[in-house]
């Protein structure tokens, strides 16, 4: 069903958000902070500490973490049954058209049409089947359809930037969209986010819940971005970058990218019967 054309909503710029606007802070300063934190993480790894995949919640170069990270250590908890299962999403939850972000309006959106596909797997390589994948993103100009996005780039009346899909039996998803643009933000002076698509995943267990961002290969902004660089391990950062896959590209139509996702963590040892999802 076509959505209404995106409308800009007028709101006051939100310059007083704590940690969001720090006039005068330079990229150089932010980059130096990032480098120091990466060095510390490498030294910890060299002395045998586990290498975390996830970013630390306290990552000062990303200023908004300052007042929003817990200062107490998280409490280790044994997952109970409810944490070892996930909501029963189904194909009735999502219309097939929601996987194509280029057909939500009467016209074609501007920008570079892309196909984005991959598989959602658990830590043992098994497909995460029949689970919900949600995406949201800026348009080709780097503008979100969100009232708090103040970037003076054009909205596209033919692009909302929201999609959903339920994974197949092999854990696969396939989306058609537009390559998003980079956009400025107020972490520091002249801060720009690399082009990215936001993803939300549910695993076989709720403990595997994941919200993350997917990036595009070769982005010159990677080294400068405190959100991407909050992941201190280079190999872990690489796992957020899609791969250009010419086998996915379609002639005269769209470029193809592949991005596989792994959701580890405790899950139920009780497995659904193979055909339960088709009942």
């Amino acid at each position: 069903m076509p959505r209404p054309a995106p409308q800009p909503e007028q709101t006051q710029p939100d310059a007083t958000q704590p940690g969001e606007t720090q006039p005068g802070e330079t990229q150089q300063g932010i980059s130096a902070e990032i480098a120091a934190l990466h060095r510390a993480a490498q030294e910890a790894a060299a002395s045998g500490a586990p290498v975390p995949a996830h970013p630390p919640r306290d990552f000062p170069p990303y200023r908004s973490t300052q007042l929003r990270h817990p200062t107490r250590e998280l409490v280790r908890a044994d997952p109970e049954e409810i944490e070892l299962v996930s909501p029963a999403f189904g194909h009735t939850d999502v219309a097939a058209e929601e996987a194509d972000l280029t057909i939500q309006h009467t016209g074609e959106p501007l920008g570079e049409r892309i196909i984005l596909t991959g598989r959602v797997l658990d830590g043992e390589g098994r497909p995460v089947r029949n689970q919900l994948v949600e995406i949201w993103q800026a348009n080709a100009s780097g503008r979100y359809v969100h009232k708090r996005d103040q970037h003076p780039a054009p909205l596209d009346p033919n692009f909302t930037g929201v999609g959903r899909i339920i994974t197949g039996d092999d854990g696969s998803y396939r989306l058609t969209t537009i390559k998003p643009g980079a956009y400025p933000w107020k972490n520091h002076r002249n801060a720009w986010r690399p082009a990215h698509i936001h993803f939300s995943f549910f695993g076989s267990a709720f403990t595997q819940r994941l919200v993350t961002q997917m990036y595009f290969p070769g982005d010159p902004l990677f080294a400068l971005d405190p959100i991407y660089q909050s992941i201190t391990d280079q190999r872990a950062r690489d796992r957020l970058v899609a791969t250009y896959d010419h086998d996915v590209s379609e002639p005269e139509w769209a470029l193809g990218y592949r991005w596989d996702v792994v959701l580890t963590g405790p899950r139920s040892t009780w497995m659904e019967p193979e055909d339960a999802d088709h009942a």
Binding site: A53, H54, G123, E124, V211, I231, R239, V261, L263
Partner: peptide
């Protein structure tokens, strides 16, 4: 072996 995909913030938008 499959390795965990890192998390990122949900962002403001």
């Amino acid at each position: 072996e499959p390795l965990q995909t890192p998390a990122q913030t949900v962002g403001p938008f």
